[in-house]
Amino acid sequence: MNEANCPMDRDAVIARYFLEHRAKLIDLAAFLDRIDRAGGDGAVVDDFRIVAMRKAIEELLKHQDGRARRIQEIFSDHSTDPIAEAPMKGALGAFNPDEST
C-alpha cells in the first residue's frame, strides 16, 4: 500500500514546522554575517562552498517543487569518471571545481 503525499493540510504543516525553519533561516543569515565579520585574507565570495550555498539560496526562492533535490544537485560533483586516487577520506559538502581531476 502506498500513501501519496503528506496527510497533513498546509495550515497544519506550517503550524508544525514554521518555528523550526524560521530558526534555521536566521542561523543561516547569522552564519553569512559571521563570515563577513571574520578576519583573514581573500574575498569570501570566492570560497567554493559559499558560492554553492548562494546558488542554493536562489533555488529556495523558486516556486517550483523539487527544491531539496535541486539543492543537493548544486552541491554535487557532476563528473562521471573515477578519479586517479582518493585525496582524503572525508567530504567538504560542496564540489570544488578547482580541484577536479
Binding site: 544537485e73 552541491f75 554535487s76 560533483d77 562521471t80 567530504a91 567538504l92 564540489f95
Partner: peptide
C-alpha cells in the same frame, strides 16, 4: 554510497 558532494557521482558509478 559516498558522502555529500561525492554521493551523486558515486551512486551512478
Amino acid at each position: 554510497t559516498p558522502h555529500l558532494e561525492d554521493k551523486l557521482k558515486g551512486t551512478k558509478l
